[in-house]
């Protein structure tokens, strides 16, 4: 309980820090006077002044900050500076399920892929298969996701769409799960695969190295001396020992993607997710939208970290129980 409260405090502190930072950067950047932009190109000084007053930009910075936070968190009616009347809180909440679906799908592919390739590479260390996997991993890692996405689109949407292999691929876009679960899944498979390619490359490398390190561990020698067979050694012992570092990495990446890190994939596949929204906010310098998406992302990173910490504690009993025992 105490741990939970301190977590909560930490989270609030992080969110506060990030919001202040984003706010300060936005208003302290020279030439970024929002009133001029909102008033439009070639507006007269009187109009700009009116806009400034109407949006409250002539008030003190702390007051403006508090007002914005009030609109964002309490009255939840913060509206965009660009699309007037558009409630950004609603927008973010509409976009979140899209990103969540995409990233969850991608995580399934990337965990499965990393396990398969990592285990294969480690078990047949130094073989032709191992080298092939490491080359593929490097290719996957270095392929830009937007290019890969465009290629996937080119192949699956136009060039080979009529072949048996890609006939099932729906047009770009997102269908909510509640509307039609089958179309929802169909529409996400290729984007999620595209997104996961680089992660499979990275994670299979990390896992392979960790597994080989674990195999050298004294406890694995004990397992051999107990009479454990190769399957048991790899899965029940080595994987159990080495999964921990991959897990903390996974938590960070997963949270980062949920917070909008899947931006390129979302744009290429026309998925209206949080990344897409961030991109939109940044290209129009729409502070309310940026503020909402950034805080949303920070929230997820902090939450995911807390979750991973909890899971870590569960998987590695040596952590967080130091007080009793010896």
């Amino acid at each position: 309980m105490k741990g939970f409260l301190s977590r909560l405090g930490q989270m609030l502190l992080v969110l506060f820090g990030i919001s202040v930072l984003v706010f300060a950067v936005f208003f302290a950047t020279p030439g970024s006077d929002p009133s001029a932009r909102i008033a439009g190109r070639g507006a007269s000084p009187e109009v700009v002044a009116r806009v400034r007053h109407a949006y409250g930009f002539d008030r003190a910075l702390p007051v403006r900050y508090l007002t914005m936070m009030d609109h964002l968190f309490i009255s939840r009616n913060l509206t965009s500076y660009v699309n007037h009347g558009q409630n950004v809180v609603e927008e973010v909440f509409d976009a979140a399920p899209v990103t969540l679906s995409l990233v969850a799908f991608a995580a399934i592919f990337w965990v499965a892929g990393a396990l398969v390739f990592g285990l294969l590479g480690a078990a047949w260390q130094g073989s032709l298969l191992d080298r092939l996997i490491s080359i593929l991993a490097l290719v996957g890692l270095s392929m830009p996701v937007f290019w890969l996405g465009e290629m996937v689109n080119l192949v699956s949407q136009s060039r080979f769409h009529e072949t048996w292999l890609f006939r099932w691929v729906p047009p770009l876009g997102y269908v909510p799960f509640t509307t039609d679960p089958v179309s929802w899944a169909k529409g996400l498979i290729l984007p999620a695969m595209t997104l996961s390619v680089a992660f499979i490359g990275l994670y299979s490398r990390v896992l392979r190295t960790d597994l080989l390190t674990a195999m050298q561990d004294d406890s694995l020698r004990t397992a051999r001396a107990k009479g454990a067979g190769p399957w048991r050694l790899w899965f029940a012992h080595a994987l159990r020992l080495s999964g921990l570092s991959a897990l903390s990495l996974f938590g960070l990446d997963f949270a980062q993607l949920l917070g909008g890190g899947a931006l390129l994939t979302e744009v290429v596949f026309a998925l209206p997710g949080v990344g897409h929204l961030t991109y939109q906010g940044l290209s129009t310098l729409d502070l309310p939208l940026i503020m909402a998406t950034v805080l949303y992302a920070a929230f997820f990173v902090v939450i995911a970290n807390a979750l991973i910490d909890g899971l870590y504690r569960l998987l590695d009993p040596r952590i967080g129980r130091g007080s009793h025992g010896q």
């Binding site: 004990t222 012992h237 159990r240 040596r318």
Partner: peptide
């Protein structure tokens, strides 16, 4: 077989 260091010889988790 039993090993020298019983700490590292058991799987810690």
């Amino acid at each position: 077989m039993i090993f020298q260091d019983p700490m590292s010889a058991f799987l810690p988790v």
